[in-house]
Design a protein around this nucleic acid. Sequence first.
DNA 1: TAGATTGTTAATCGATTAACAATC
DNA 2: TAGATTGTTAATCGATTAACAATC
Lengths: 205, 205
Amino acid sequence: MTDVPDIVVSRLPVYLRALQYMVINGKSTTSSQELGEKVGISAAQIRKDLSQFGEFGKQGTGYNIPFLIDSLLQILKVEKVWDVVLVGMGELGHAILRYQGFVNRGFNIVACYDSDPLKIGTKINNYSILDVKDLVKDAKKAEIKMAMLCVPASSAQKVTDLLVEGGVLAILNYAPLSLAVPTYVRVQYIDPVIGLQRMAYYLNK
Amino acid sequence: MTDVPDIVVSRLPVYLRALQYMVINGKSTTSSQELGEKVGISAAQIRKDLSQFGEFGKQGTGYNIPFLIDSLLQILKVEKVWDVVLVGMGELGHAILRYQGFVNRGFNIVACYDSDPLKIGTKINNYSILDVKDLVKDAKKAEIKMAMLCVPASSAQKVTDLLVEGGVLAILNYAPLSLAVPTYVRVQYIDPVIGLQRMAYYLNK
DNA sequence: TAGATTGTTAATCGATTAACAATC
DNA sequence: TAGATTGTTAATCGATTAACAATC
């Protein structure tokens, strides 16, 4: 289990999501072949990926889905729920807060922040919008490790620096720019336009 | 220009975004070194990527930013605006419709659809919510090539099939599951939980 | 037992990096 | 001219695939 490539790690949540979907549909067993077809990845790749972490299947019969799900939850460390803070309560921040499809997948928003005095103190969905000035202090105190960043591009780096100062180690960044962080901090980027532009390349004008 | 690897294509929008940000900050020239630091990619990689499409720099002085931006817009085919349809007007669909940071990056939402009779016909931001029953017909007629999919997981595959039938070739999928599409159709996935789970792997419990 | 499917090894394939001549 | 930086080549590195013995 020494130093699994990140590209392998990046596929595990996709496997997990497909397996959980299978359970909902009443399946209890699958094969690397079948799972591969669902997620668009080769069967050999799936077996190779899983083999990084142990042996989860049986020759001849494949994988017990609940067992594999449980194993993946453990590997990804999402068998319990992580506390996450949300920074930036614009249109997008609001939508994320109201969405709440996170908890049963391992994450719970515990607080939300903004810098706008008109927003601070107002309530959304049982959350009081807090002052970003308290972010560092609060994050340290509650030992928050994860954050979602929904502020405008113009203040994203500044807020990122605060998150890092507060001890946050993983940032889901919705602001449309690349962030500078220390090597020990992870960032995942969500910019729908990047995806659209990437696909536009393949279209004919 | 024969068959550029998709991994190269996937980085171009990131370069573009960083370059456009530089322009806003009044810069007119950059180097592969400087751009690389901004986006967290090696200088050699950037030069190699760009070399797939031509020569855009000058030895000794680097790249003229407006020229490189223009070149990337052409390469990615986003120098004009693509019409996009939005399907699924729940919480998320609403937020996307209200957001509208798409147009100046190459995309414009031209219509939105839902299947809920209570929603069909209502207005949001000058958009009338249309009946998903008309999706195939409308998409064909308007020659829509791109769609954003914000329906629940349970109906995502069904709606995807409609999009494909309507001639859509690129789908930005917000539903938390893998979609089955013909090989000539592209899908980009946006599931924040996948990003969070991927980062959770590296955290200590 | 026969068929199915795993986990793993070796081979192949592709992507990244280092280095440098060319040249602005 | 000297310094800087490109575009490109070759070397390195890493990821994917094919194949198969093991075994349920």
